[in-house]
């Protein structure tokens, strides 16, 4: 089990204070309910390969590791799509991308359930 492995690992390495912070941040966001269709959507997409296109025209392909409520994204096993033109990240294999610099995310076709998205969007539209 992945969960139990993480747990054991956590007890061995002590508390991660950064997780404590994020936990508090999450509690705060519960008091201030926000609509979060795409946050939920991207959480379900964790583990799949995506291509993130940035507003500086860089396109990075990688496995989606995690996402937060700002739609900041962490990718693993990354490679820049046009490495000859953009050799700036040749020695980077994991990276954090700030949500605000994302232009597009190319999604894997098997990661899009059209009917589910329509329902979630209508629900979100009613709530907002």
């Amino acid at each position: 089990m992945v969960g139990s492995y993480i747990n054991t690992h956590k007890f061995l390495s002590g508390f991660s204070s950064s997780s404590l912070y994020l936990f508090i941040a999450h509690l705060l966001s519960l008091n201030n309910p926000v609509l979060q269709l795409f946050f939920s959507y991207f959480k379900d997409l964790v583990g799949k390969e995506v291509t993130v296109e940035l507003k500086n025209d860089l396109a990075i392909r990688g496995i989606l590791h995690s996402v937060d409520q700002y739609l900041n994204i962490k990718l693993e096993h990354t490679r820049v799509v046009d490495q000859d033109k953009y050799p700036h990240m040749l020695s980077v294999r994991n990276c954090f991308i700030r949500g605000s610099v994302v232009r597009y995310v190319q999604l894997p076709p098997d990661g899009v359930d059209v009917d589910l998205l329509h329902d979630a969007t209508r629900r979100e539209a009613r709530g907002g």
Binding site: L37, F38, L107, V112, V114, L117, H118, A120, G128
Partner: peptide, 24 residues
């Protein structure tokens, strides 16, 4: 129609109040 002279045509599958969208 997007900033930096980009245009998209596609099927709208999801959106939110920020106009984040998923297009097919």
């Amino acid at each position: 129609k997007l900033r930096s002279d980009r245009e998209l045509r596609g099927k709208l599958h999801a959106y939110d109040q920020h106009l984040n969208m998923i297009l097919g």
